[in-house]
Design a protein around this nucleic acid. Structure first.
Lengths: 119, 119
DNA sequence: AAAATGGCTTGACATATGTCTAAGTACTGA
DNA sequence: TCAGTACTTAGACATATGTCAAGCCATTTT
């Protein structure tokens, strides 16, 4: 809760790779680092792969907790990190919350780092 | 010094995107997370952009310390993180150490996360 | 209504991390 | 040789982070 959620959608704007072009400003570096930090955890990598492989239905907290052998509180923590970074999209349906992957956001994040983006 | 250095060069092997394919094993998730963690810091993002923009000559600790307003000890710490992740390559020349970007490693890291890698 | 289920929040705890100062090592140049 | 420069390491410190247990809220089911 200390960090606010910059769920920006600068998906197609950022090409091509500002990092490789050496024009990264302080705010941009911080923003990029925050998004990468959301991904830089083995559990969250596994969560993302589950979600991406889970199709369009989305994945629930309970299922992830069972498959990854972690408590629902811990999964909830990780899901929030990924959601705040804009990499997951939550949709509530009754008592359950389904999390789906934001492929455009992930693609944008990747594109910013790609050294061969526009090469 | 707690983490050892997995300076592997699985550059072209990993395509296409295992994360999107949902086949990420525990060791792979840990390995990916460690590399991402090396990048998930605003200072290290700026260092990488400096190095990438610096051409083929490489960049020195001193220059980074001056430009980023940090001590040489702190820069050394960050340079080690990036080097251990295989994203930078250090070459000593006399009293100076020049750091260059490992574009293939960065490209490989990006490719693993790209949801549209082979689409 | 009552019980069960799914999910989130809080508080606590151990560990990890970024930064600095201080000290040490290695090379360079008068 | 001596002073200066470049880099690294070690230690200290504050902050951030991952995890769990416990509790609370909303929804579903009996």
């Amino acid at each position: 809760m200390p960090k606010s959620l910059p769920v920006i959608e600068h998906s197609e704007v950022l090409c091509c790779a500002p990092v490789a072009a050496g024009i990264v400003s302080d705010p941009d570096a911080l923003d990029l680092a925050l998004r990468l930090k959301a991904l830089a955890d083995p559990v969250r990598i596994k969560i993302l792969s589950f979600v991406l492989a889970g199709g369009t239905n989305g994945v629930r907290n309970v299922d992830l907790a069972r498959d990854l052998h972690l408590t629902d509180a811990t999964i909830s923590h990780h899901l929030r990190q990924l959601s705040q970074a804009g990499l997951l999209i939550a949709s509530r349906s009754g008592a359950s919350t389904f999390y789906g992957a934001n492929r455009t956001a992930l693609g944008a994040l990747v594109r910013v780092l790609d050294p061969n983006c526009c090469a």
